[in-house]
């Protein structure tokens, strides 16, 4: 009898997270993700997660005996995410530094509650709320959202937004090439602002350069998803820092460790930062000081820059 109790206790406690390992998976030769892994490790330590529970695997190779099904896999970047999905079918997984569209597709069919993701996207709702604030005093409240034809995620998000009446939306889903961008000139003409969410086909390279060119020609402010854009001519960016993603990831791991599950919302958008290109803002008749001041107000700050999450 005693022996049976001991066995049961061992099984019970053995399955608890406190006794499980956390494998941080990092693809080889990815210096930025290696640095991120170290940062996450530091954040986890500061949250009381024992050093012994952590292992960082540089290179995507499973242990010879495979992952223990009680272990948590923390996958950084898309390569590690694919690896974790293939090799940790019984494991709970935290994805970090991944794009939302990728992770939604990759986890298709996977059991709800067995994973969570810290995504690097800015939710369109966040950019929309910012546009709403910026255009509050303007007579023209038309916002242009161009995205690439295949970006189903953005198409869906815009569809959800279009039920809102605060702003007038012009949504153009295009085959991303220079000629199609140049054909958007009437939309540029009618718009008061452009939202540039993450879209690797449209808002990159030559296409991004042309969009910035067009926007400036029509004196339109761009609200972008990355600080790189404000340096290239966008008026404003809501962006994530590595520190914020690391903190958010550590928080999620801590949640798992405490409850062996994730909150219901599997997609997490960490708290964002704001950067304004003051010169561009002034040239476009916006007051950067006022924008910063408005975003200090708790309600606006939470609405626009605060952490958000969404169910799969």
């Amino acid at each position: 009898m005693t022996a049976r109790y001991l066995l049961l206790l061992a099984l019970l406690f053995g399955s608890l997270p406190g006794f499980a390992d956390i494998h941080i998976l990092v693809p080889e030769q990815s210096k930025s993700l290696e640095a991120a892994a170290e940062q996450i490790k530091t954040e986890m330590r500061s949250r009381g997660i024992a050093e012994d529970d952590l292992s960082i695997r540089y290179g995507l190779q499973a242990p010879a005996e495979g992952f223990d099904k009680t272990d948590l896999l923390l996958a950084l970047g898309p390569k590690a995410a694919n690896f974790a999905l293939q090799n940790g079918q019984q494991n709970k997984i935290v994805f970090s530094f991944v794009e939302e569209a990728f992770i939604r597709e990759a986890t298709e069919g996977r059991k709800v509650g067995s994973w969570a993701a810290i995504v690097i996207n800015q939710p369109l709702q966040r950019m929309y709320a910012l546009a709403e604030l910026l255009l509050a005093e303007r007579s023209n409240k038309t916002v242009l959202i161009p995205n690439s034809l295949n970006n189903a995620l953005l198409n869906k998000q815009v569809e959800d937004l279009s039920q809102s009446e605060a702003l007038q939306l012009i949504h153009r889903s295009i085959e991303p090439n220079a000629r199609n961008i140049s054909r958007l000139e009437d939309e540029f003409y009618q718009a008061a602002m452009i939202l540039a969410p993450l879209d690797n086909e449209l808002w990159r390279g030559k296409n991004a350069r042309l969009l910035l060119h067009q926007a400036y020609s029509y004196q339109l402010p761009i609200v972008a998803h990355s600080r790189a854009f404000t340096k290239a001519g966008a008026m404003l960016a809501v962006y994530l820092s590595k520190e914020q993603v690391a903190k958010e990831t550590a928080d999620l791991v801590k949640t798992w460790q405490a409850a062996d599950s994730f909150a219901q919302d599997a997609i997490v958008y960490p708290e964002a930062n704001l950067e304004i290109n003051d010169n561009i803002a002034r040239a476009l008749r916006y007051k950067p000081e006022l924008i910063r001041q408005q975003l200090q107000q708790p309600e606006q700050k939470q609405k626009i820059l605060g952490r958000q999450s969404r169910a799969r």
Binding site: S32, F97, I120, N121, Q122, L198, N200, W203, R204, G205, K206, A208, R209, L212, H213, Y216, S217, H225, S226, R227, A228, A232, G233, Y239, L240, S241, K242, V245, N273
Partner: peptide
């Protein structure tokens, strides 16, 4: 308009780079 540097080098990660 000439964005001074080519955005071709824009990162895949929408992060503060």
């Amino acid at each position: 308009i000439f964005p001074l540097a080519v955005l071709a080098a824009m990162p895949t990660m929408a992060m503060d780079e």
